[in-house]
Computed example of a mutant assay.
Amino acid sequence: MINESKQTLRVLQIIDDASIGGGQIHVLLLSKYLLSMDIKVTIATASVGWLVEQANILDIPVCPIDISNKITWRAFESIHRLLKIQDFDVIHTHGGTAGFWGRLVAKILQHKSKIIHSYHGLHYLNIFQNRQMRQRLKNILFKTIDQLTLNVTDHIICVCLSDYEKAITANVASPSKTSIVNYGIDIVKFSQPINKEISRKIFDIAPTEFIFGNVGRLHEQKGHQYLLKAFAKVSDRARLLIIGDGDLKDELIKLADDLQISDRITFLGARSDVHEFLSAIDVFVMPSLWEGQPIALLEALAMGKPCIVSDVDGISEVITNNVNGYLVKPKDIAGLTQAMNQSIDNPEVLKQLANSGVNTITEKFLAQNMAKAIADIYLTQII
């Protein structure tokens, strides 16, 4: 048992950005449930943002850092100061930027801490033919950095089998010191949706409207252009609401105009009220081109929302076609259209998919089980 150790385990979680996202939600839930096991947790992240606000609510100590994927003295000093002053049994880095700086500085300081690194989707391994040469070179650099820092890493955690296989193939992880620990979510929160009528008022949705919802950065990875093109062929009885912000915002708004569907699509921007959003929609749609294991999908399933998703990577480890959701090939506009129209016309099928989705979460993706598995990794490394 965790609390039978001779002294309290001290763990530092490092993530570069504090704005809301899958990695930040994971760090918060992991920290929350580690605390319930009498493990002392500190979070190092940007000085302001969603993660800082939520950590403060839970009384989790936060150390402000200022790091980026640019090589600067400021970034080095930000981590160096923290690791030199404070002593941790485990340093757990999340994502490429934190993984680079955390592991580099710990090595320079010859830290006695055990170094754990989590991959939250290996995005740099998904290089498409239309990528610019500059981006290709950056991806090669990120891969090389992960290969070099593997030597100073005690253990790697991948959030799904797909990431594990990609990491091993790319030599950024080794089978002997890599584990798969699926994401977990707080089922108590998402199994208690707020009243649908109330939630719809928040987003200006009429009670009888059929609503498709999407949550994700407005980025190439998330496949929004294919979603919009598919939705243009969906029954005009439906509307589409999208939560998220990103570089493609203006391009996607123009595409909606060109497809003459602007009156049926609402871009809501970045928001933190995903719980209310999921309560308001009828079907969750995620047409990603690649993924690790998206927390937004797990939250939608826990909320009892039928899901239409791309048959890629970690998504297909969660969704079984026609059992707990619909799987569609990536970039398959016709397939997306068919699945969305099918959803509108088959409420009884949607109910069955929703029930199976909730069962999937309770059986495989609970936050407390995720935290216990990671705590066991910490202890295995310490002992």
Results as ranks from 00 to 15, higher is better:
residue 55 A to K: 07
residue 15 I to A: 10
residue 5 S to L: 15
residue 266 T to S: 15
residue 139 N to I: 07
residue 376 D to A: 15
residue 73 W to H: 05
residue 322 N to A: 07
residue 112 K to H: 15
residue 77 E to A: 13
residue 80 H to M: 08
residue 383 I to W: 10
residue 192 Q to T: 13
residue 61 P to C: 02
residue 107 K to P: 02
residue 80 H to T: 08
residue 244 G to M: 11
residue 20 I to S: 15
residue 75 A to L: 00
residue 344 I to M: 03
residue 329 K to V: 00
residue 149 T to P: 00
residue 231 F to H: 00
residue 227 L to Q: 05
residue 222 K to H: 04
residue 191 S to D: 11
residue 353 L to D: 04
residue 298 L to C: 07
residue 354 A to L: 01
residue 276 E to Y: 01
residue 196 K to C: 03
residue 280 A to K: 01
residue 74 R to F: 05
residue 249 K to T: 03
residue 47 S to D: 13
residue 167 A to T: 08
residue 116 I to R: 07
residue 382 I to T: 15
residue 322 N to G: 05
residue 10 R to V: 12
residue 239 R to L: 08
residue 192 Q to K: 11
residue 175 P to K: 09
residue 367 A to Q: 13
residue 23 G to R: 06
residue 362 T to W: 03
residue 6 K to A: 14
residue 82 L to W: 08
residue 180 I to Y: 04
residue 68 S to T: 14
residue 333 I to G: 07
residue 248 L to Q: 10
residue 50 W to H: 09
residue 126 N to A: 09
residue 38 D to V: 00
residue 203 F to L: 05
residue 8 T to I: 13
residue 344 I to A: 03
residue 377 I to F: 10
residue 290 W to G: 01
residue 358 V to N: 00
residue 381 Q to V: 14
residue 244 G to R: 12
residue 291 E to N: 01
residue 144 T to K: 03
residue 341 N to P: 00
residue 30 L to H: 13
residue 60 I to P: 05
residue 215 V to G: 09
residue 314 G to N: 05
residue 214 N to P: 00
residue 190 F to E: 05
residue 346 N to W: 01
residue 125 L to K: 08
